[in-house]
Write a protein that binds this DNA or RNA. Structure first.
Lengths: 240, 240
DNA sequence: CGATAATTTGATTTTTCTCAAGACGCGTGG
DNA sequence: CCACGCGTCTTGAGAAAAATCAAATTATCG
């Protein structure tokens, strides 16, 4: 995020709910434990500043102070790290409803960029933490968001450790389908390169996996950014 | 955990601090944010039941109800999942001071086993959550433990995605060294197979990486469970 | 419609896995 | 104290998977 943009956010959050706009939110923060559907979002008493980012715009960078928490309203976000020799590992893709930017320490350990034009709600970290002290519901929501991030990172680990290229791509598509509302038609907001960097593969290997899955009748492609999952059972078998 | 053992724990926790034994604790739960050293452990007002597990004993299994949180007192723990065809992916190794068993949902998504004879403190999940509602320090500690778990899972992801076998092993050794108090001498509580299943490699490849690192003068082996890290600078370069 | 970027496909090389055998370490029992 | 046996670790050779390098094809956007 640029310094100017960051300061704008500070101003907005400090001037208390100046911006509104929490109404379109699809997935609320959740309470302790398994109550993932509870409408706790509106009870937070916090209203994020709305910000908008263009395609490939940086939302925050590795090493920056972790001043804010973010919730995706529309669009999609990738968080990633770059190794010294330029290799990139994408940690997670964040879709509408997801919270990102949570850090144990005071600095961001990853960078975040918008995949496409993306709107986020921005919450001041200190404000959220301060409120959490007074309101258990906020503390619960904060923990729940973090625990779900952890769960997703662990699922990602299972992909990278011991799966073949085809299995990784298939698992990825299935997980994406389950996060999107649509039925068996999945829209891919990310490029093949993004997928490759998420799955620990090269772009060519990802492409070949798509070709293979198509040949096996597991998917159909309507352009390279739209996939239909056929034969969900075979998918589950490949993925498990 | 056996049913008998689980019930014993329920009993102990329900009968309020019957067991004591929190005094030897090395690393407390921490507060919001970066205050990792804060002595918040004693302020929790929760006293875990102490349990002991032998080598390879199951602490909990995938799919079981997540009734408890665990803190390692001594020994070491692996959490893992088994894929349908028998491949095992280790999610994390937990050393003394670490909290494990945190779940967003109500079921454990991984299994946990003791690597060696291991002592843990066991906290009833519902008790911790109930206390967190009344005491912000407990909520903070809970969030901090979860956020650090997330951080570690993300670091693990960076290892698996885009690194060579040697880089993975070197990164692993360095991370382990940084978690242990000792200087450059690292004790390995896990087998080569455990490391392989953590790093997404085969046991042979891990062994060859050790041989390579030794040939390059980056490590020295005193038996296969004790490694000395020479040339920390070269390590950092290999790892970054 | 044309230019440019993204994706797919092909040929070859590198890395890691697999299968096999040998060495080492460790605990047990003589 | 030493020999034996068993499990773990290391080493080797060949096979498989994915990476790399290169080119063709397809999508995207002005």
């Amino acid at each position: 995020m640029s310094q100017a943009a960051a300061h704008a956010v500070v101003y907005n959050l400090n001037t208390a709910r100046a911006l509104g706009g929490d109404r379109a939110l699809a997935y609320p923060l959740n309470a302790w434990g398994a109550g993932l559907d509870e409408e706790a979002g509106d009870s937070l008493g916090l209203m994020g500043a709305r910000m908008s980012f263009g395609r490939d715009a940086e939302i925050f960078g590795e090493g920056e102070a972790a001043e804010f928490l973010y919730r995706v309203v529309s669009g999609a976000v990738r968080t990633y790290r770059i190794l010294s020799d330029g290799r990139r590992q994408i940690g997670e893709f964040h879709l509408p409803g997801d919270i990102f930017g949570l850090e144990a320490g005071s600095e961001h350990l990853m960078s975040a960029e918008a995949l496409t034009r993306t709107e986020v709600l921005v919450y001041r970290r200190t404000a959220v933490f301060a409120l959490a002290v007074r309101r258990p519901a906020v503390a619960q929501a904060l923990w729940g968001a973090t625990a779900r991030d952890l769960e997703r990172a662990q699922a990602h680990l299972m992909l990278l450790g011991r799966k073949s290229a085809c299995e990784r791509v298939a698992s990825f598509l299935l997980a994406l389908a389950e996060r999107q509302v649509s039925g068996s038609e999945v829209n891919l907001p990310m490029s093949r390169q993004d997928m490759a960097d998420y799955l620990g593969l090269t772009i060519e290997t990802v492409s070949r996996a798509f070709t293979q899955l198509q040949a096996d009748g597991l998917i159909a492609l309507k352009g390279c950014r739209c996939v239909t999952l056929r034969n969900r059972a075979a998918f589950q078998a490949l993925v498990e």
